[in-house]
């Protein structure tokens, strides 16, 4: 992970200087930053519920954090450690989610091969298309600008 950056700045929100990078200090900072991320997510949930816009709360939350960072309301070091930690372990959350697939075993059993083909083909084709196309376009653009 390249996200890890040991900051030597003081955290403006929790007023804990991070120069003494003890584990306890770091833990407290992560807690604070998690609370901040949690607040952004809850705010997004609320907005989605009240306005009824057809956008998932987590997507809105990403855009909100992005805009807050762009506008400078939130600085990178206000969320850096918690975001780094959670993104590093983002796969963990999908373990219990994937366990729920066991309930749908019968549907998959019933339509087995067709579903398998549909899922495999519709994953591999776009993977190749998007990957190759993006690579091609970026190379061409780089050549043009040089």
């Amino acid at each position: 992970m390249h996200l890890v950056r040991t900051g030597h700045t003081a955290c403006a929100i929790c007023h804990i200087p991070s120069t003494g990078t003890t584990t306890v200090n770091k833990f407290i900072r992560i807690l604070w930053q998690t609370a901040l991320l949690f607040a952004i997510y809850q705010g997004s949930l609320w907005v989605v519920r009240v306005t009824g816009i057809p956008v998932p709360a987590n997507v809105l939350g990403i855009l909100v954090l992005f805009c807050l960072l762009l506008s400078g309301v939130i600085k990178e070091h206000h969320v850096n450690e918690a975001a780094t930690f959670f993104l590093k372990h983002l796969v963990f959350f999908f373990v219990p989610v994937a366990v729920a697939l066991m309930n749908w075993g019968e549907v998959f059993y019933q339509y087995g091969w067709v579903l398998l083909a549909a899922i495999v083909v519709s994953a591999l084709l776009p993977l190749a298309l998007v990957g190759r196309l993006a690579q091609y376009l970026q190379k061409r653009k780089d050549r043009c600008s040089n």
Binding site: L45, F66, L69, N80, T84, F86, L90, F93
Partner: peptide, 10 residues
């Protein structure tokens, strides 16, 4: 949810 919001940083 909050963990996904962290994607705003990268």
């Amino acid at each position: 949810g909050p963990a996904t919001v962290g994607l705003g940083l990268p």
